[in-house]
């Protein structure tokens, strides 16, 4: 598979603090990647290094096949970091023109991209008059100007209201649907879960996991059960070979599996033993639960 970004043993120290420690991973074309981690885990530093604004301490990275210089490679990349940064005294259109000049692309895409993010009718207004949501959308338009091979988003919904968050997510989904590679850094797990196929999990600058979202922890999921004969149900589960442990919380029993078992078979077994359920749900851990498990265990 064609690689877009390769990071090898990257380390960044700020004085005594090690922000990123011996980090390696590869981003391949066509996937949607998430970088997950609590605040201060080194997500933004890592992105800053590959985007040429933070100097690395050790290690290496290269864009595409490794034959282009970083700043030339960045012309084929679209990136938004934390907050939208534009010249407040210029209008949206003028700001985008400046970006076009830097990236060396024609000015003909400006209208099209403003249309995508729904700012076409405000293009002649000064950037300083924009709301945060609009600023963030303008940043996305700016990142899309060169039809990038990869779009890098660092906390794109930070500080936005629910409508703003929804708008940004819709735009990201549209872009992802067109096959653009996306790298999304976030601490909002449901955000990553909704759009990403692969994740890199960081904590304190150390990589805990990198790979597909659904393979993050080896788990067979769990059942959520309710029953009028609670004690009998608990006794049955305790003696069942497929379950590891249970948890009871205000009448809701959560039973964790250690080997695959379908809800159909389980329900049948219970019925044959005279236990009738009033509630049966089979689930896999959400990304949030997986993430917490992963960060707690290490």
């Amino acid at each position: 598979m064609e690689s877009i970004l390769t990071i090898k043993n990257l380390t960044k120290k700020f004085g005594y603090l090690t922000a990123v420690k011996d980090l390696s991973f590869t981003i391949n074309k066509g996937n949607v990647y998430g970088i997950l981690g609590p605040n201060g885990s080194g997500k933004s530093t890592t992105l800053g290094i590959v985007l040429n604004v933070v100097n690395k301490t050790e290690g290496s990275f290269h864009w595409f096949d490794g034959n282009t210089s970083t700043h030339d490679a960045l012309k084929k990349v679209g990136a938004i970091i934390e907050r939208p940064n534009f010249y407040p005294y210029m209008t949206a259109e003028q700001n985008l023109k400046l970006v076009c000049k830097i990236k060396g692309v024609g000015l003909n895409k400006i209208e099209e991209k403003l249309e995508v993010v729904g700012l076409l009718d405000r293009k002649n207004h000064k950037f300083s008059t924009y709301s945060l949501g609009m600023k963030q959308r303008l940043a996305i338009a700016s990142a899309l100007l060169n039809d990038p091979e990869i779009l890098i988003l660092d906390e794109p919904t930070n500080g936005l209201d629910p409508q703003g968050i929804h708008q940004i997510r819709e735009i990201i989904k549209q872009i992802a649907a067109k096959g653009t590679t996306i790298l999304l850094a976030s601490h909002l797990l449901d955000e990553v879960e909704k759009v990403c196929s692969h994740v890199v999990v960081l904590r304190k600058g150390v990589k805990l996991y990198s790979g597909r979202v659904d393979e993050m922890i080896s788990s067979h999921g769990f059942f959520e059960l309710k029953c009028n004969k609670e004690t009998e149900l608990l006794a049955f589960i305790e003696n069942h070979p497929s379950f590891s442990n249970t948890k009871t919380d205000s009448g809701l029993i959560t039973a964790f599996l250690k080997e695959p078992l379908s809800s159909e078979d389980f329900n049948k077994q219970l019925f044959e033993n005279g236990i009738i359920l009033t509630h049966l749900v089979q689930r896999k851990e959400s990304l949030e639960e997986q993430f917490l498990q992963l960060t707690d265990n290490n």
């Binding site: 040429n52 700043h71 012309k75 907050r83 534009f86 010249y87 407040p88 830097i102 060396g104």
Partner: peptide, 17 residues
């Protein structure tokens, strides 16, 4: 103060440029 220097570099301007 506008942090546009950061954005300029991210957009593909080198520090020398």
């Amino acid at each position: 103060s506008n942090k546009t220097i950061k954005q300029n570099l991210i957009d593909g301007l080198s520090k020398k440029e």
